[in-house]
């Protein structure tokens, strides 16, 4: 443990400063409790998410390189992002900048032109869950827990881009491919690629019980198409929610503001249509950890969750 660094650059992303305020607030609470320091990345820009990359390749490289450059300016080698989309975009840029020299040179030239310091070194990006697991770990969570989440059955939903694809997330060393240099290296701290368990471990350390949620724990929620392709997203979310409910979950723990928003939005729409077994509420895993650390429901902004997990948590005496 302790391989990533206790003090890192924190890239919250657009969503966490707006509708997903609860995730930002609870993340800061958990980091403070676990003795970790988040250095807010000043004046960052959007990572381009899953949308811009379909329109422009070099544009997304530039967007992310600007954020990396800001992190370097603040003296960091490591960026931590709480959003799957943001960490994916940064890691994707990292992959192309490292493996394709022409991309790296072009990006640096363009950064200089845009009035931003060029990259002397490419900082690495980690998802915040990985960082919590490796810098604090379940043991520390157990020590800090004042009000164990006893009796709470959690379905841990990781979403797509936390472990995938291994090229960017570096979840395993790939043997194939013709280009020797393009082969990605596995990161020592990375989660298991098909059966991620870091969130299970942290929440179980806080006293919760994980329900069997495979293979829906990494199933897509509709992601970038949650607004543009409603029928497909609705079906995917229905499958996720029903699997959670039928496996006995009280709550779904999420770790990405986009998955979270998608689950809550379609949960509401499915309930309006009268689809059975979809009424499982969702909460960010940091909110649940915050509750376990003794913070009130108001502190971790549980009211912000549109799926309203408060009744479930109150019934179990946790909020």
């Amino acid at each position: 443990m302790g391989v990533i660094g206790k003090r890192v650059a924190y890239y919250p992303g657009c969503s966490l400063e707006g509708a997903a305020r609860a995730y930002d607030v609870s993340t800061r609470i958990v980091a403070r409790e676990l003795g970790l320091e988040l250095d807010y990345l000043e004046d960052y820009n959007c990572c381009g998410a899953m949308e811009s990359k379909n329109v422009t390749f070099m544009g997304t490289m530039l967007l992310n390189a600007r954020n990396m450059s800001l992190a370097r300016k603040q003296g960091h080698d490591v960026i931590v992002a709480p959003c799957n989309g943001c960490s994916f975009s940064l890691q994707r840029a990292e992959y192309f900048l490292e493996t394709d020299k022409s991309v790296f040179e072009r990006v640096n030239a363009l950064l200089r032109e845009g009035g931003v310091d060029p990259l002397d070194k490419i900082p690495h990006t980690y998802h915040i869950l990985e960082w919590f697991y490796h810098e604090a770990g379940p043991q520390k969570v157990k020590e800090k827990t004042k009000r164990p989440l006893r009796g709470l059955k959690v379905a841990n939903y990781y979403g797509c881009l936390y472990t995938r694809p291994h090229f960017y997330a570096r979840t395993y060393a790939h043997a194939g491919g013709q280009d020797e240099d393009a082969r990605p290296r596995k990161r020592d701290t990375a989660d298991d690629d098909e059966h991620p368990y870091y969130m299970n471990a942290l929440l179980e350390a806080a006293g919760a019980t994980s329900v069997n949620f495979e293979p829906m724990h990494t199933q897509c929620c509709g992601g970038p198409h949650s607004l543009s392709d409603e029928m497909v997203s609705e079906k995917f979310v229905m499958m996720i929610l029903q699997t959670a409910k039928r496996n006995g979950a009280d709550i779904i723990a999420t770790e990405c503001p986009l998955c979270h928003a998608s689950l809550e939005m379609y949960r509401h729409r499915l309930m309006m249509k009268g689809v059975p077994d979809v009424d499982v509420p969702a909460a960010y895993f940091t909110q649940l950890l915050g509750l376990a650390f003794g913070y009130s429901a108001n502190d971790v902004k549980l009211k912000d969750n549109l799926s309203d997990p408060l009744p479930v948590l109150k019934r179990l005496g946790l909020a």
Partner: peptide, 26 residues
């Protein structure tokens, strides 16, 4: 196609402001 319309709409917002905002996007 629908997703391209959305992608472009999203990218234009990023280009204009540097950040996106959920309400306006929705």
């Amino acid at each position: 196609y629908p997703s391209k319309k959305f992608d472009k709409f999203f990218t234009e917002q990023v280009l204009e402001y540097g950040r996106i905002e959920d309400g306006e996007l929705l």
